[in-house]
Design a protein around this nucleic acid. Structure first.
Length: 417
RNA sequence: GUGGCAUUAGCUCAGGUGGUUAGAGCACCAGAUUGUGGAUCUGGGGGUCGCCGGUUCAAGUCCGGUAUGCCACCCCA
């Protein structure tokens, strides 16, 4: 590897410098604060798991498993995968930690995910997600709660108005299987007219064909069997209760019969908050119900519902990051004052102030620095002030300044905290 | 993984048909202003023109490859 090549970040990864990091913290912190009101507790699961955790749960034929996983053998020969999403990890955690005793559990998480995809705006190989999982409730009210929490998070971030909530039902396992068979039969008779992509989908995930953008596919899809005709009464009743619950809460939604999910573990409710403001990567928060997942992984038969949201996408939608907290600048003049300033800086920090102390430069340079870092006030200490046991405090917005006795500095500076 | 477009200073970008020491704005540094920042003016530092190779007397400019970004597809947060 050449020196230059090694200095590039790995494709699809990004450094988060302070401005962007603050934007991320705003998104994550806002979500954490909101979902806590619903009783969600934050947890963290490892960013890698045995590959089986993802292979078995996401579906052997899913795109994530077939081409997007970062997998490797570790030194012990175990097959390891960097998590491409976190629901499987949380489900594994639920089983490993014996949490079936405590249902229902409400979890919130935030952290990096990894998918080996071709990068684009809003799509990176290492990206960050926040998400919630509500495990152990089979009632449709749980779906409504989870969606409502998503709405509140988007609203608190000021982006709800830029999104549309699309919702659909995938039915229970029985409904889904009979519909799947009907689709395979129908599309099987029209393979000649299907796009190459859709012919592949026919064996892997025929529901995907419904969502195809190919014009020829769309003509065939227009006459395809409707999912509504294959939903059993229980599935219909479940979905009705979800939509009724949303209406009760005044949550606007757009039914989208063609909304499907790429991951095998979903059933019943599927939903996505989409936006047209981010180009092709329009999904900012999405999720659904995954009643079969935990049993499939070897746990007890435990239902679950949740969502995940992309931190980068939400941050982009939010626009500018919140400003950093403004510091006060300590500006000593002369050796005696510099020595005093080091001690004073510690004192002021102990009182909760953010304090910047430059270690070199004359008064003019230090004032320029204070200005550059957007200090709210500068505290000037020279021989004059020192002899009087005081400091000159300059308000950097108004330019006014006054002398303050050193012992009462904390009290005076409280307005800048 | 497929196709298209891009890559020149820290950032945003100029650089007809190849032709002497590659430019601008912003940012940065210094001075005007040696106890007072922001504005203005003056000056300054900073570029292996993504990388490798080819064509040519001569390549930032043309060709090939490669890396990365962006756009679309695929799929998803």
């Amino acid at each position: 590897m050449t020196k230059m090549a090694s200095l590039q970040p790995i494709r699809g990864t990004h450094d988060l410098l302070p401005d962007e990091m603050r934007a991320h913290r705003h998104v994550v912190g806002t979500a954490r604060r909101i979902v806590e009101l619903y009783g969600y507790e934050e947890i963290a699961t490892p960013i890698f798991e045995f590959s089986q955790v993802f292979q078995r749960t996401l579906g052997e034929a899913s795109d994530i498993v077939t081409k997007e996983m970062y997998s490797f053998a570790d030194k012990g020969g175990d097959l390891i995968t960097l998590r491409p999403e976190n629901t499987a990890g949380v489900a594994r955690c639920f089983i490993s930690e014996g949490l079936a005793q405590q249902v229902p559990v409400r979890f919130f998480y935030a952290g990096p995910m990894f998918r080996h995809e071709r990068p684009q705006k809003g799509r990176q190989r290492q990206f960050h997600q926040i998400g919630v999982e509500l495990i152990g409730l089979a009632q449709p009210e749980a779906d409504v709660e989870v969606i409502a929490a998503g709405v509140r998070v988007l609203d608190a971030l000021g982006v709800l108005g830029k999104t549309v909530l699309e919702i659909n039902t995938l039915g229970d396992h029985e409904s889904r299987e009979s519909y799947r068979q009907a689709l395979v039969a129908y599309f099987g008779e029209h393979t000649a007219g299907l796009s190459e992509d859709s012919r592949t989908r026919l064996s892997r995930n025929p529901l995907r064909i419904l969502d195809s953008k190919d014009e020829g596919d769309r003509r065939i899809v227009a006459d395809a069997p409707l999912f509504a005709d294959y939903l059993n009464p229980a599935s219909v009743a479940f979905f009705d209760r979800v939509t009724a619950g949303l209406e009760t809460l005044g949550i606007a939604f757009a039914p989208n019969p063609r909304l499907v999910r790429g991951l095998d573990y979903y059933s019943h409710t599927a939903f996505e908050f989409t936006t047209t403001a981010l180009g092709a990567q329009g999904t900012v928060l999405a999720g659904g119900r995954y009643d079969g997942l935990i049993k499939m992984m070897g746990g007890s038969d435990t239902p679950g519902v949740g969502w995940a949201a992309g931190v980068e996408r939400l941050a982009m939608l939010c626009g500018t990051a919140p400003a950093a907290r403004r510091p006060v600048a300590l500006v000593p003049v002369g050796a005696a004052a510099e020595a005093e300033a080091v001690k004073l800086a510690e004192r002021l920090r102990a009182s909760g102030l953010r304090v910047d102390l430059a270690y070199s430069g004359n008064l003019g340079r230090r004032m320029k620095r204070a200005n550059r870092i957007a200090a709210s006030a500068s505290i000037l200490i020279g021989d004059d002030e020192l002899s009087r046991g005081a400091a000159t405090v300059r308000n950097m917005d108004s330019g006014t300044q006054e002398e303050v006795a050193l012992p009462s500095l904390e009290e005076f500076l409280a307005q800048y905290r």
